[in-house]
Design a protein around this nucleic acid. Structure first.
Length: 424
RNA sequence: GUGGGCGUAGCGUAGUGGUUAACGCGUCAGGUUGUGGCCCUGAAGAUCGAGGGUUCAAAUCCCUCCGUCCACCCCA
């Protein structure tokens, strides 16, 4: 089958049978944001490339090697959005949302693009549900976001998830910590795995979540950030934990939680399925980013938010075999034959749909047997049969497909009323 | 971006050098007069991911590319 076109690498079609998952996700997101009072804000699919270079950070992998960037015919440097947060912040500044009552609670559901090597749960084009609260630095806002995040999965019916919560302090304190961490590891360099020796220079935090046994042993004596937070960050962290406890949301403090974007400060969290060893298992993650808005040209504005990867959520929904609302079988399937029967079938269809009944028509030219098979396969409750004979008599034969046998003639024009009685 | 596994009809699989590539599900058509589910019969559907090479002979061996999955990396 090649030679034929196929979806570009790392992209996928969403076929009809996949749609119930997406419907469930949109319903759950809509419901949970409504309950928490979040408003939807949608941004463009592409933005000024510099927004992410500044916002996300031009030393991050996302910006350095994963952005789809291009120049348009007018010479503008643009990027397909790799994440929503800087775009939401841009919109917040551009439209003066800072002048509305603070904080502003927003959400979006959008496609994101990152050029990386595809894997299960890692696509080049993927969808995220994203919530942000701008204009508040309180711990309770973080707790609220984590709770909302949690309730979203809860509403979908997902179980066996775990919130991992951590704090990475503020920038200055984090730099000091990184120095301490490096000081600890430097003399031990030779004992580290090859990967970790490289990490020591590039991203020392990564040493802490290495899977290599050698690294894990050395980790025992390493300083941890969470036990040595600045007083302000420590108090904030306590506030987040208090808020979650009050909300009845379970969490585990993870001192090794080092994942996430560079702009995060203080609160960070991720939600993962318990006992899943895969690398792409985190289905959602978030954190506070008090410095980002200033970085992209706004006044210093505290903010916090999270994103959840919807394809990853669906992987987990399938794994947990969640029951989905089925799309709904048709109410009626109209079987017909002959020119006059065809016209009557179209009229019957219009009448039925006008009355709110989901109605499918059989294929003209196909045998009754074929059409009846299709009617049965469609799951329709009733078959409405209009052949030459019925059409001539101005009636349709109504047949309940749940039972054997019985069918009766109903005058054309009274079909919808009759179905109404049968289906209430 | 690095390393590795895999790639046979729409889907799931069998076949690992030798006649027209097999099976299940699905699709289509039939099983006497215009009627479904079960059953039966038949048909369509595959340049065996693509291109090149080795060989008398390749789905099967080799190379390249594409796709997918796993690890690394990154992250949702």
């Amino acid at each position: 089958m090649s030679g034929r076109f196929q979806t570009p690498r790392g992209t996928e079609d969403i076929l009809p049978e996949e749609q119930p998952y997406w419907r469930a996700i949109h319903d759950a997101a809509g419901e949970v944001t409504r309950l928490f009072g979040y408003e939807r804000l949608d941004t463009p699919t592409f933005e000024d490339a510099a927004l992410f270079e500044k916002g996300t950070g031009d030393t991050t992998d996302i910006v350095e090697k994963e952005m789809y960037s291009f120049q348009d015919q007018g010479g503008e440097a643009l990027s397909l959005i790799p994440e929503a947060t800087p775009a939401i912040c841009r919109a917040y500044l551009e439209h003066g949302l800072a002048s509305r009552p603070q904080p502003v609670r927003l959400f979006t559901i959008a496609r994101m693009f990152r050029y990386n090597r595809p894997q299960l749960g890692r696509l080049r084009q993927f969808n995220q549900f994203d919530c942000e609260v701008l204009g508040s630095g309180t711990a309770l806002v973080d707790a609220e976001l984590i709770e909302l995040h949690w309730r979203f999965y809860e509403r979908l019916g997902l179980e066996n998830l775990e919130i991992r919560l951590g704090s990475i302090d503020d920038l200055e304190a984090r730099r000091a910590y990184l120095d301490r961490l490096r000081d600890y590891y430097l003399p031990l360099r030779d004992q580290l795995s090859e990967d970790s020796q490289r990490r020591l220079d590039r991203n020392p935090l990564r040493l802490l979540d290495s899977n290599d046994p050698r690294d894990q042993e050395l980790r025992e004596g390493a300083p941890t950030m969470i036990d040595d937070l600045s007083p302000e960050a420590a108090e904030h962290f306590e506030g987040v934990k208090d808020g979650l406890t009050a909300a009845g949301v379970p969490f585990v403090v993870d001192p090794l939680l080092v994942r996430g974007l560079d702009y995060y400060n203080r609160t960070v969290w991720e939600i993962v399925p318990k006992g899943d060893g895969r690398q792409q298992s985190s289905i959602g993650a978030g954190g506070r980013y008090d410095g980002l808005i200033e970085t992209i040209g706004g006044k210093p504005t505290p903010a916090s938010g999270f994103a959840t990867g919807l394809e990853r959520v669906i992987i987990e929904m399938k794994r947990q075999e969640l029951p989905l609302r089925d799309a709904g079988a048709p109410d009626a399937f109209v079987v017909h034959a002959g020119a006059e029967g065809g016209r009557a079938a179209v009229r019957a269809g219009a009448e039925l749909r006008g009355a709110g009944f989901v109605t499918l028509l059989g294929e003209s030219g196909r045998s009754f047997k074929a059409q009846m098979r299709r009617a049965n396969g469609s799951g329709a409750r009733f078959a409405i049969i209009i052949g030459e004979d019925e059409a001539a008599r101005g009636v349709a034969a109504l047949k309940d497909l749940r039972e054997q046998g019985d069918q009766e003639d109903v005058p054309l024009g009274e079909i919808a009323a009759r179905l109404g009685q049968e289906l209430r």
